[in-house]
Design a protein around this nucleic acid. Sequence first.
RNA 1: GCGCCCGUAGCUCAGCUGGAUAGAGCGCUGCCCUCCGGAGGCAGAGGUCAGGGGUUCGAAUCCCUUCGGGCGCGCCA
Length: 578
Amino acid sequence: MRSEIRSLITRAVDVLLQERSIDPGEMPLWTLERTKQKDHGDFASNVALVLAKPLGSKPRDLAQAVLERLPASGWVTRAEIAGPGFINFYLSTAAYYQVIDDVRKAQKNYGCCRIGKGQRVLMEFVSANPTGPLHVGHGRGAAYGDALARVLRAAGYDTQSEYYINDAGRQMDILALSVWLRYLELCGESFDFPSSIYQGDYVFDIAAILHREGGARYQHVVSPLMLDLPTDEDGATDMLIERAQRCLGPEGFQKIHELATNTLVEDIRRDLSAFSVDYDQWFSETSLMASGAMERAVQKLKDNGYLYEKDGAWWFRSTDFGDEKDRVVIRANGKSTYFASDIAYHFDKLERGFDELINIWGADHHGYISRVKASLSALGCDPSALHILLVQFAVLYRGEEKVSMSTRSGEFVTLRQLREEVGSDAARFFYAIRKPEQHMDFDLELATSQSADNPVYYVQYAHARICSVFRQLEVKGIQVNLERADHQLLNEERELELLRALSRYPDIIESAARAREPHQLAYFLRELANDFHTYYNAHPFIAAEDSLRLARLALIDATRQVIDNGLSMLGVSAPSSM
RNA sequence: GCGCCCGUAGCUCAGCUGGAUAGAGCGCUGCCCUCCGGAGGCAGAGGUCAGGGGUUCGAAUCCCUUCGGGCGCGCCA
């Protein structure tokens, strides 16, 4: 609807520019917006205000000139100049009636558009280390990332979602060590656990699997392991890892490493799937090393002259691209850094042919943005293809009380717990309704309360109510054929209000996609639900006489479809009864 | 110290690339089921958009600055 009006203005402006022999290339962008107040009509454009200066006219004069050249349209009943030079458009009811047919025709696809032009986008989000279960902090990234991926698909981007598995590196070695030590405990060994290892129950669970399946194959006497450990925690941990590898042999340690990784990745996959987040692809860091992709990327950096050796390590000259300091890629001990994997990974993404990369990171990683972008530049790629979106942390509360979280101590609320307490739908909506860069207070008591405080029920309830109306029809034996509905019978103010809301949905999808802000959709859905509930309370559907009833049923059926579409964008279900 | 994010009603938050009289939910006050689901609807009270400068026809929005809060500045991941 909006694009139709917009094209009318564009045509008028083109004519005007032609008459005045002005090059249309340099014109600033103008807008066509929904009005906030009804006495400003349905749409308002600032075209005359924006173009006044470059065209050297007074805004109101220019607005008049545009109006005179506006092509006739059955949808616009009136267009007039207002205030400093806005042009207000009043739409005919016919324009709004059209929406019902649009929804009915497009069904699940109503609201979709082609602004993405099929551009290939790779979205990477969550990508938490598989060293433990996901916690509520990951939930926000998951909810945001998945909703954005869905919105981008609806907007015509060829979007793929991916989870990067950090299954190499020291943290994973510590995990394997932790599992082994718990396993030794199950074998009857007794000793003090170093504080640096992972303490969570899941470590014990994996150890139990190892004990069940491997019997005593990995058993060892503990006392020599613990002898003469360095006093600092990191040193002690590294030495324990070394000793574990020596005791078990590279294969034995590897076996435990794999068991731990596979178990946790599978657990994460199931956890996210229950949160309605299903990835197109799971990409393993180890595979980058196995395929030689990592070495290739490092070699390419060397060839391009961006690596140098200092203190036995290889450094990337990221300061050449505006980073604060140069960064180590290969450590003095010969092992690559996490950053080296990241370089290879992002290079690989672009080599796979994506036009745009979107990463969703926790705000604590913002310091990494410049160095990753620098590495892309150094590899001869365009760093502007990579967009890194940050989600702020959610501070957890139980009522008034702040919940402190620490992964190491195992003292955190998991995503699974949240889901089990409040349900996937409520959790997703709760996350989705906040814009990502906003700090957020997550009150577990509020989210846990299955009350109306939680906005998701309000929207779902509207959907369920509509479904219930159609069930009532069946109970009463009333046959309806919505194809025959005469939309012109919808003349109540509340009906037009509802139609207006439905017509906004495509704009919301487009805007949410452009701004990468799915929360716009959540707000829209609450407004749409409000319009419906108001309508529901004011007018009967079933009791009305036949033709009016049919018209109203067609309207609420379209409403049901749009709520369904919108909720599915957010990964929230649209129940037919609650 | 330097860098990034944020500061809007009692609380939690919207406010679309600057646009007309700053909105919603919760909470508070008062109303609304002879009718299709009251997890609903209507109305009211409530704001110096953290403070101060600047840019212009026009600023919650852009720039500078002060204050306040979060996060980051490893041969960790």
